[in-house]
Nucleic acid binder design. Structure first.
Lengths: 215, 215
DNA sequence: ATGTTCTTGTGATTCACTTCACAAGCGGGA
DNA sequence: TCCCGCTTGTGAAGTGAATCACAAGAACAT
């Protein structure tokens, strides 16, 4: 089943799941596609299309069982078990990630942290000891780490990523403002603050240029 | 000119600009759509389509002038002047942002920082003094802040955002894992680490389920 | 001049995602 | 049992973005 699920669909599924977990915590039993849509910023039809891609989880006339759908989505997204991640580069962003509370709560454990700066190595942050890069291979093997978060300065990002991949990483979350080149089959997502800020600048600028027309 | 530029186009323009600045620093004079495409992860046709949306900047047979195109893009994106931003919520992420070096370098100045925790107020981080939320309106006015970065805990995010908007913010960059509701006309971009991580989990999981067929 | 080579700019086409619209089905009440 | 209100699941239609493909044009050599 389920061929070629687009990135945007996956992102929406995550949002649905987030909502479902909240509803579940509130002991809600059922939810309609309409409500799910409104609270996650999409349309009812979209919700149903997204879900129907993976099976038929609802009851006509009733809606979806919060608990069941939650379990289904967790399974679809691969979130029915915890994930172990590593952070490479313990600068401002890396440090923030090590102490970021939502991770554990959402099923992600940071098992290892790496930096090349000798003065940082050995210290502990958020309960994780910072190790030198040459400990990377062993740590990845030992903890079965499959996701690497790249938070190094831009010059070091490609090397760090390549190294993580050869050590076994199958997915990279990249905070460095650079286009990483990775072997086929390694998943990649980017988090680029300045890129998003620049996008906002465009929107603000565009909205205030009296340049053209109504709307 | 230029009606309805899509988000994805704007994002690509940012990437082109980033590349052009680098080429400019290396004293490169011209660049082809092909090279620009390869170094930013898209196709030559896409680059030309994106640019032609705003005008005709290249020379047939030659390519684009690095300097000229850079200036054009900076103007299009509204990056021909500096922007002043505020950070709301000085927890892990907020602190990281205050010290994040790339901002200044990229034309963004953090002019103000706010938190509700009395123990944080008054202290200085990255050269910015942390203020109480009730100083927000005045600071926004004084510094003409148009972009607010929301880095509060999820419960406080909607309030913080609404307040920033009524104080004059015209764009919000939201780090809190919640769908903000904002008045029409206010630009919004989201940075959600767990959402991206979950997306990666899906990709990794999908890639390793022998479930169905060959590619 | 003329031809060759190169790269842009852009209509036409293809592709993928979203929205629409409605039959199918469930539960509850009379 | 039969009807009615409600919501799902899903083909069909619509929309918008990415890709293709090629004419237009620029430089340069001969």
């Amino acid at each position: 089943m389920a061929r070629k699920t687009s990135d945007s669909t996956v992102r929406r599924l995550s949002r649905y799941l987030r909502r479902l977990r909240k509803l579940d915590a509130q002991d809600r039993k059922v939810v309609s596609s309409r409500e799910l849509a409104e609270t996650t910023g999409t349309t009812a039809a979209q919700v149903r299309k997204d879900l129907s891609h993976f099976g038929s989880f609802g009851k006509r006339g009733q809606g979806y069982s919060v608990g069941d759908l939650r379990v289904h989505l967790e399974e679809i997204l691969g979130l029915d078990h915890r994930w172990t991640v590593a952070v490479l580069g313990i600068g401002k962003i890396g440090s923030a990630l090590l102490g970021y509370g939502y991770f554990t709560e959402r099923g992600f454990d940071i098992a290892a942290a790496f930096d090349s700066d000798p003065s940082k190595i050995g210290s502990e942050l958020g309960g994780v000891r910072i190790q030198p890069l040459n400990a990377l291979e062993e740590a990845f093997r030992e903890h079965r780490i499959s996701i690497a978060i790249i938070a190094t300065p831009v010059e070091a990002a490609q090397d760090a990523a390549s190294r993580a991949v050869s050590a076994g990483a199958r997915a990279i979350l990249n905070f460095a403002p650079i286009k990483l080149s990775l072997p086929e089959g390694v998943a990649l997502r980017e988090m680029d603050v300045t890129l998003e800020l620049e996008g906002l600048c465009y929107l603000v600028t565009e909205a205030s240029t009296p340049a053209d027309g109504p709307e």
